[in-house]
Design a protein around this nucleic acid. Structure first.
Lengths: 235, 235
DNA sequence: CGTGCCAGGTGCCCT
DNA sequence: AGGGCACTTGGCACG
């Protein structure tokens, strides 16, 4: 279905493909309007529209990882022909969001019968870092003993809660990559919350465990009396 | 270039398209390996590979807004034929990252001559909220006077710095949507930093300006003695 | 180039 | 459905 100038055939191909649960792409010159959590307008240009069977819509230009406009999974796609021009209207509720793609010209329409049973397996994630610490707590500090993961506080869940060799409470915040000030703020919230929830005589230490730390974050750690431990998510 | 079983023709089409600065898509059954900031493996399945002229690579399955695997702009794409199977190797440096897509079968290859001169225009952003506050400071509070935007502190830049009707310093943190604990942590960092950098007698107030706030964030605001003002980014 | 932060972030898990 | 947070977050602006 390449280089199709007949608008009716284009519309039918898109509609048939969507009805068949296929992935459909439309390439051509179009304008795009979005309205929902924000609003956006995009003037004419050549783009690749990807319509997925799960209700996803992606508008890709020649540049960038991100689609210039999109609609998340779960949307309803409507295919219309108005004055001989193809219009795709994709909408959802909660939140109310609409995407309109209006094609001036359509160069190509393609249907793809997609099936994918494989699951993506990722390593080097924060979960891997947590496993590493739980298996070898001494990597954090000699004498460190994990007592709980995801321990709840009023400020949120602590990645790893434990005690040091002196019996002090230890809050560990894990990050798979170099950390900035935001991670320090997060750790500080948990430490502060735990101190309020603990007996007055209990000392609560806060440890940020990550591959590295920025200067600004390092200063903030010092200001708040928190500590840093360098550790990679992988061996 | 649909339903092409000839591997050599497939490879040549992909290579020619990339050389011509076109957007190229390859659809078929493939495996994907990624290694870089993390590592991942994806078993066989039907996917749409999108190769952009700026060096972007996207691997899309039948589900989801996000590509299951990808490579950011600026990568080098290598097209190879190994034992009659198409292999796309996409790599970059800083950080060192590689993506390998190995096609068991190729169902379709398409080339798209993409040009896009239009710029996306978005409204309802944090910048809009800032403009709104600067034009009508009383929306924040009667007597509020903005004095600076992006005022620097040791903990980062304050969105809007100003004074209230009593002459107290005011730190305003803007968020375009409902805020959680992270925004409170951010505001608290700026307020704490500014207090340290100010004369002891100066009172520094912290205002979180956003459409709404979660319960947890609200509690944190109270704990830290910070305030909330409800305001939307649009009129 | 690294640092810091917004984004229509998205996705996952939990209540 | 909403909250809290990780993510190969991506993207931009600034030092």
């Amino acid at each position: 279905m390449d280089a199709t100038p007949d608008p009716v055939a284009v519309r039918d191909t898109v509609q048939t493909g969507l009805d068949a649960g296929e992935l459909v792409t439309v390439f051509g010159r179009c304008r795009v309007e979005y309205d929902g959590r924000a609003s956006s307008t995009l003037g004419p240009g050549d783009r690749l529209l990807v319509l997925k069977p799960d209700g996803t819509a992606l508008v890709h230009t020649d540049e960038g990882h991100q689609p210039v406009n999109w609609q998340p999974p779960g949307c309803e796609h409507e295919v219309r022909l108005s004055d001989g021009t193809l219009r795709i209207h994709s909408s959802r509720t909660t939140p109310e969001e609409t995407l309109d793609v209006c094609f001036e010209t359509v160069t190509a329409v393609n249907r793809y019968a997609v099936t994918d049973d494989s699951e993506l397996s990722v390593s080097g994630t924060e979960a891997d870092l947590r496993e590493r610490v739980l298996e070898s707590p001494s990597l954090v500090e000699s004498g460190f003993e994990p007592r709980a993961t995801e321990r709840e506080t009023a400020a949120g869940a602590i990645d790893i809660y434990g005690v040091d060799e002196r019996g002090n409470a230890v809050v560990v915040e894990l990050k798979r990559r170099r950390v900035g000030p935001d991670a320090v703020g997060q750790l500080d919230r948990y430490v502060t919350a735990l101190r309020r929830e603990s007996h007055d005589e209990t000392t609560v230490r806060g440890l940020l465990v990550a591959p590295s730390v920025t200067d600004r974050a390092s200063e903030l750690l010092a200001d708040r009396g928190l500590e840093f431990v360098a550790l990679e998510p992988h061996s």
